[in-house]
Amino acid sequence: MEGNFVEALKLMAVGMITVFAVLGLVIAMGNALIRFVNKYVPEDEKPAPKAAASSASAAIAPDVRAAVELAVAKITGNKGKIEKIEKI
């Protein structure tokens, strides 16, 4: 059992150092990624289509929108969510 204790002590030292080292590297890598993305992919492109979608949806008459919402709610059992309504 004494041998076990010594082995456990060594494992504790190795384990804690490794866990700190790995998470330290993840943090360092995360910071490097942030700098890299800021430099080479600066624009977050997501908001643009959202704005377009909302303006497209806004063009739909309120009564039509209400009817579509009711239909979707009925068919999907209130689980469906409308993100965009477009005229085709």
Binding site: M16, F20, G24, I27
Partner: peptide, 23 residues
């Protein structure tokens, strides 16, 4: 990101109980 470091400290319980449990 800096706060992620404290996720490492919280693994101490694992190795401390390994030490006690080894007896």
């Amino acid at each position: 990101l800096k706060l992620a470091f404290f996720g490492a400290a919280a693994q101490f319980g694992i190795f401390a109980v390994l030490l006690i449990g080894s007896n």
